[in-house]
Design a protein around this nucleic acid. Structure first.
Lengths: 192, 192
DNA sequence: TTATAGTATGTAAATATTTACATGTCAATC
DNA sequence: GATTGACATGTAAATATTTACATACTATAA
């Protein structure tokens, strides 16, 4: 379904950007629900250009260095709008290696699985904090009703990302709780 | 990182199964966090066999139809256990086309985006109900502390899947709320 | 008996994505 | 003056995944 195509066209709806800018956009912001490496972005930009959905102008950066500033064409806008209105069936559930490990956790010593959860909590906590900070920084003292333009979508998905991470952490706490109670239930393995 | 390999080995840790069984397992159960089509499963089974991590015996089904019953080898078990103990860095956030659409929702008429949310809620609700039913059916009158074996992992990820869907719905309700308030704020477009 | 749905296994081709290879400029600071 | 990190753009190869092609048996119910 070429979603990368529409992720890129959507960025270009806002303003002209370079491939490098797109790669950056797929970092912390958009990156909470879509991303791509530059090695996928540059070929896609080339393809979209051939298809006439975007076009670029060469801009000098300093003396020698040239960059390509891409903008969306009218045809591209129509194509994007047509996609935006689509209502496709639910995607298959996203893959999650930690959940997969948890599913098979019966084969681990409880202590080992407990440690994995603990480590996962640490990592998730960092991610959560980062997102929460971003949300607060931009929207803490703002009534969401007053938002307009790009800030609307940004707020919707950023708050959604925070909720998602909060929820993942809640689940991890629950797992940790349960595992520690399983440990307590265990017949003591003594070595003394 | 060949996660499919370990998803399959994990299934075989429990009991010998056919490729068809594995494809089924990636349906409603495991499917809440990992899945693969049969066209990916059969080649992977072949590869794992060549690598000596699994082996199969041919079993007759009826008169003519033969199926391959795969079981995990000792080497396979070791490989699986080694993977299970790993603690890799956080995966990139899973992609989500609906969130991508939401990010770009500024280009939609509020009414159109509202309708997309509404439809998404319906679909997500069905998925949530299905998972919740499964959870209740298996674990409603059970103290999770008493669970053992495969039921532990099953409970952990199933309850996690229910939480995740609940959370997604909460986010959708929030989006719907906000969008409807944006609509109210709008200058009325009259055609009379 | 004859559809039909489900069981069962594969390959081929296309698409999507990641990792590695490869190069060069610019701005700042040490 | 040299190093470093960010800017900037690409290709190649490998891996992962989906869609489509392809076949054939089994059990059940109409």
């Amino acid at each position: 379904m070429r979603t990368l195509k529409y992720a890129i066209l959507g960025l270009l709806m806002q303003s002209p950007v370079t491939g490098y800018d797109i790669a950056k956009a797929f970092g912390p912001g958009l990156g909470s629900f879509w991303s791509a490496k530059h090695s996928q972005i540059y070929p896609e930009l080339k393809r979209l250009t051939v298809e006439g959905l975007i076009q670029y102008s060469v801009v000098m950066q300093g003396e020698r260095m040239e960059k390509k500033l891409y903008e969306i064409t009218e045809v591209g806008k129509e194509d994007f709008m047509q996609w935006l209105l689509q209502d496709p069936p639910l995607e298959p559930t996203p893959k999650d290696v930690f959940r997969l490990r948890s599913y098979y956790s019966q084969w681990l010593a409880e202590e080992d699985y407990f440690q994995l959860i603990q480590n996962q909590i640490e990592k998730r906590m960092k991610k959560y904090s980062y997102l929460k900070e971003r949300l607060d920084r931009h929207y803490k003292n703002v009534d969401p009703v007053t938002l307009t333009g790009a800030a609307r979508g940004d707020y919707l998905v950023l708050s959604g990302a925070v909720m998602r991470e909060q929820n993942y952490l809640d689940w991890l706490y629950q797992c940790r709780d349960l595992v520690s109670r399983w440990v307590q239930k265990n017949p003591q393995r003594c070595d003394g």
